[in-house]
């Protein structure tokens, strides 16, 4: 709610209480809520990810190109990994942004650190999203021994 001296409006009695009378918006509040909402979703996404990739079967030893090929031919895991990538990157970037704001008190230092942070965010999210959607599980000239069984069905 903005009030200029020339056109002051007397709020009506039932107007909701506005704690801050500025035009800066509620960005930090939404970011605070987002940290909590995304955190809850990430528990499911990350614990599921870790369980399937590290606990089932031979764990980390069976991860190779064919394993990823087998997972990403299923839309289920594509959507899972995409959601996890986006939520974790927004959550992590926003968290590190808070930390930079806390410790980097010089304007220039803070500006540089946040520029680097947002650059890393854009590159990582773009690259990860591209890979999930353009991945070719059965490349034409690849050594068949390295491919998932679904390539031969």
């Amino acid at each position: 709610m903005t009030t200029t001296p020339s056109a002051q409006v007397i709020p009506s009695p039932r107007d909701p209480y506005a704690r801050r009378k500025t035009t800066r918006g509620n960005y930090e509040l939404y970011s605070w809520v987002f940290m909590r909402a995304s955190g809850v979703l990430l528990i499911v996404l990350i614990f599921g990810h870790l369980f399937v990739n590290l606990m089932v079967g031979e764990g980390v030893h069976r991860i190779d190109f064919a394993f990823v090929g087998g997972k990403w031919t299923s839309p289920f895991w594509q959507v899972w990994d995409l959601l996890m990538l986006w939520l974790a990157m927004f959550h992590g970037t926003n968290g590190v942004r808070t930390i930079i704001n806390d410790y980097a008190s010089r304007d220039l230092t803070r500006g540089i650190l946040k520029t680097l942070l947002y650059l890393a965010f854009v590159i990582t999210v773009a690259l990860g999203t591209l890979v999930i959607f353009t991945f070719e599980p059965c490349p034409a000239n690849a050594d068949p021994a390295l491919l998932a069984s679904i390539c031969f069905e």
Binding site: D64, F65, A66, V68, G69, W72, L85, T124, L127, G128, L130, V131, T134, F135, E136, P139, A142, D143, L146, L147
Partner: peptide, 14 residues
């Protein structure tokens, strides 16, 4: 994310 991106390069690289 970088290491996983290598699936786009070649099975061998990954």
């Amino acid at each position: 994310v970088l290491d996983t991106s290598l699936v786009r390069v070649s099975p061998e690289a990954y």
